[in-house]
């Protein structure tokens, strides 16, 4: 990945945070377009528009060697961590040129090079892996941290509490990042829990826990800086980031379950717009510079669609590959077995 798109370990200031948020926003918009053009592999596309500050703010304090898992709404996190948007788009389109050669897709994207241990389509499914990664870091005396990103919906899953307990018990370099976009699919957080102050649960397990407003990316980044530093030193942490999911659960979902007024108010809490306004008002960047930056990003993201659309389909012969390690026999195709059994000789 080119250096300008990765965020190695320092809060590079509001212009950079803005740029990365804009990249996430534009990427997600292009993912929506890919679907409309009929080029995405399926309709299981969960956009993180409105949640850019969580991805960008937290990832601005991750280093090489750190690992993380995400939920199904994880495009922004992976991109903020330095992913190549073209290979991401190709994966979302189910192409051989994607990160997982078209086998994973939007919900199972991963890249070991960037420490992405995998997006997950099971709510809470990726959380315990960071406990294991934390154990590996502790035993190997490596100065790395492992982060689990998940949504508010995962706070209903027992695995989160099993994992938080273990992390706290063993004082692992682990952080739990809850991106609270107010909705688990169609159910609002206050319809799913009696106590929506989620960080209180983590405190009960002995974790260092905070809630921040996702409208302000700098606040997210500052909180992440502090908590991640603590986690590296053996004080596992929990960070809840309050934001609003701008669109439906998936790209195809028009969210009829929530009131228009509520939606309009929620969309006012736009972290990207907020950062942009701040940059202009504080005189850090001129509007024309920001327009130029946005245009450049739009161009970069347009190219991801071309890359995805023009990529090859996976080879049929790859279908039986990677069920087991490369040196192992591949499973026998059903047709081969039937033809063999029914052969007269």
């Amino acid at each position: 990945m080119t250096e300008k798109n990765s965020m190695p370990g320092s809060n590079s200031g509001l212009p950079d945070l803005y740029r990365h948020m804009r990249r996430v926003r534009t990427f997600e918009e292009r993912v929506g377009e890919l679907f409309v053009r009929g080029k995405s592999a399926g309709s299981m596309l969960h956009l993180s528009v409105g949640e850019e500050s969580a991805a960008v703010g937290v990832c601005s304090h991750m280093h090489d060697g750190d690992t993380f898992t995400t939920h199904h709404r994880g495009h922004g996190i992976f991109l903020a961590r330095g992913a190549d948007p073209a290979r991401m788009m190709a994966e979302i389109a189910g192409k051989e040129t994607g990160y997982c050669h078209g086998k994973g897709g939007s919900m199972h994207i991963a890249d070991m090079g960037l420490g992405h241990l995998g997006a997950n389509a099971i709510v809470g499914g990726g959380i315990p892996a960071v406990v294991g990664a934390g154990l590996a870091a502790r035993n190997g005396k490596k100065d790395v941290v492992s982060l689990a990103f998940f949504g508010d919906g995962a706070t209903g899953q027992g695995i989160l509490y099993e994992s938080m307990n273990m992390a706290a018990l063993w004082r692992l370099p682990v952080m739990f990042v809850c991106i609270n976009n107010q909705y688990g699919m169609g159910t609002r957080i206050d319809q799913a829990t009696a106590n929506p102050r989620l960080h209180e649960r983590a405190e009960a397990f002995g974790l260092v826990a905070r809630t921040v407003d996702g409208l302000e990316v700098e606040e997210v980044a500052d909180a992440a800086a502090e908590l991640i530093a603590g986690a590296r030193a053996g004080k596992p942490a929990f960070l809840a980031i309050e934001c609003y999911r701008f669109y439906g659960h998936a790209r195809k979902d028009k969210s009829p379950y929530r009131a228009e007024a509520e939606e309009a108010e929620g969309r006012n809490k736009d972290p990207v717009l907020r950062a942009r306004t701040k940059l202009i008002e504080s005189g850090i960047m001129a509007e024309t510079d920001l327009d130029a930056m946005d245009a450049e990003i739009a161009q970069e993201m347009d190219a991801t669609i071309d890359f995805a659309v023009s990529g090859n389909e996976p080879q049929m012969s790859s279908m039986f590959r990677d069920v087991y390690a490369p040196e192992e026999a591949e499973p026998e195709p059903v047709r081969t077995r039937i033809e063999r059994i029914l052969a007269r000789q």
Binding site: S317, R321, P326, E327, E328, A329, E330
Partner: peptide, 8 residues
Amino acid sequence: RTAGELLH
């Protein structure tokens, strides 16, 4: 390169 591939 691999036995798995060859078997295929």
